[in-house]
């Protein structure tokens, strides 16, 4: 398989602390790769190494099948990026910020208007970025990353500090990039739900180690939400459900349905009522990122 990004044994140590350990990242073309992990997991450090901003302690990075150490400039010609908080020159306007970068890349001046339009900042092109809201700065950062028509776009927590409507806007923007412009996108986040809504491939990193890397469908199996029933005499209720051929778990207090389709939940409730149990609660249990991690590690899906 041809990968747009492939790291081998990528490792970064800060003193004694191992921020990234033996990372094997594999990103196929045209994917939106969700790089998921809690704060401090090593996402930003990894991204810095992908861009050559920081040298790995060991290991290698290949982008577009080229060695980053040897062909950094040729690679970065086709990479757009936004690392951690949005970067900008506070003394310049939005348009001037892009112009300062455009002079280096050498794309036509009209490209500035185009990217400002893509992120819907064309009305504030002549305003100083200093006074921008966090969301506007993020969008300007994305505009800057699109300036060179990249084939690979790397966005590090691009929805950080945005309000819900801003998040939706950025999500919609990112989702159309692979289709509209043939880009491959890496997007990092510490929010499971965010990755779930955008990514097509997922890499989960925890304490610097990649603990899962597969398609979003595979990950959803881990992140599946459960429906929990709180009933009177839960053990007998559980046995009654099993006797009627339903799949369920029991853990001292609660019954968990393994098939949580609407239909299945309704059937289970119907049977329990019929069999004379009192139903106190029917709840959906959202899994936290930690739960998912725990399960991933437990099931040894280590990659």
């Amino acid at each position: 398989m041809e990968y747009i990004v492939e790291t081998k044994n990528l490792t970064k140590r800060f003193g004694k602390e191992q921020a990234v350990s033996g990372l094997e990242m594999k990103i196929p073309k045209g994917e939106i790769y969700g790089f998921l992990g809690p704060n401090g997991a090593g996402k930003t450090t990894t991204i810095r190494m992908l861009l050559g901003l920081m040298r790995p302690t060991s290991g290698s990075v290949h982008i577009f099948q080229k060695d980053l150490r040897k062909e950094r400039i040729r690679i970065l010609n086709k990479v757009g990026s936004l690392v951690e908080n949005p970067s900008y020159y506070p003394h310049l306007t939005a348009g001037e910020n892009l112009e300062a970068l455009r002079k280096i890349i050498g794309v036509p001046k009209t490209r500035i208007k185009e990217v400002l339009k893509i992120v819907r900042l064309e009305d504030v092109a002549n305003k100083k970025v200093k006074g921008f809201s966090m969301g506007m700065k993020q969008r300007l950062g994305i505009a800057a990353s699109l300036l060179n028509n990249p084939e690979l776009l790397i966005l590090d927590e691009p929805t950080n500090g945005l309000d819900p409507s801003g998040i939706i806007e950025i999500r919609q923007l990112i989702q159309r990039l692979p289709h509209d412009y043939g880009m491959t996108v890496i997007i990092s986040s510490h929010l499971l739900s965010e990755i779930d809504q955008m990514a097509t491939t997922v890499g989960v990193v925890s304490k610097g180690k990649m603990i899962f890397q597969d398609s979003i469908e595979e990950m959803r199996k881990f992140a599946k939400q459960k429906v929990v029933l709180k009933v009177s005499d839960s053990e007998s209720a559980w046995r009654a459900l099993l006797a009627r051929g339903m799949r369920a778990d029991w853990d001292e207090k609660n019954i968990t349905l393994l098939n949580q389709s609407d239909e299945n939940v309704a059937t289970a409730v119907k049977y329990l009522v019929k069999d004379g149990f009192s139903i106190y609660r029917v709840e959906e249990e959202k899994k936290s990122l930690e739960d998912v991690f725990l399960q991933m590690t437990k099931e040894e899906r280590l990659v």
Binding site: L51, N85, S87, Y88, I105
Partner: peptide, 18 residues
């Protein structure tokens, strides 16, 4: 100064230049 202020360095040095 303006490179230090708001992450200018990382944006500049992630561009295709040495």
């Amino acid at each position: 100064r303006y490179e230090h202020q708001e992450g200018g360095w990382k944006q500049l040095l992630a561009m295709p230049l040495t």
